[in-house]
Amino acid sequence: MAEKLLNWDEVLIGGTIKDPGNSKQYETGSWRVERPVWNPDTCIQCMFCWVYCPDSAIKVDENGKMAGIDYTFCKGCGICVEQCPSKPKSLKMILESQAKGKTEEELRKEVFSSEK
């Protein structure tokens, strides 16, 4: 959230917002009930998760490859998991309560250990 509201004399004419893309300060990750967990070992880098993600929450590295999930914005809709074409799926949904207090690496091991 914005730290403080603008004063009347600070508001621009027409309610113009002068910094583009400042909604990044508003974190939608807290909406999540379920979260996707990514397994880089089976990922085939098709980038379908990126093209179908409604919240631009798929991290991309400088080579244009999938580099993880941005949990500050991911709303947990599950589209990425549904559209993941690799076999077995490289993305899986787990409950947020299950993920509490665990690091990404621990979760990855826990969720994908049965497949190896």
């Binding site: 939608t28 993600c53 631009s56 244009g64 490859k65 941005d70 914005f73 809709c77 599950g78």
Partner: peptide, 30 residues
Amino acid sequence: LLNELAKKKEGLVSGHRLCPGCTHSVITRQ
């Protein structure tokens, strides 16, 4: 390829308040 496109600067950034699973932003990002 999608990898090439993914490197581009996004025209629409995250933090919008559409419902989870809404495709409005999917379309716009595409």
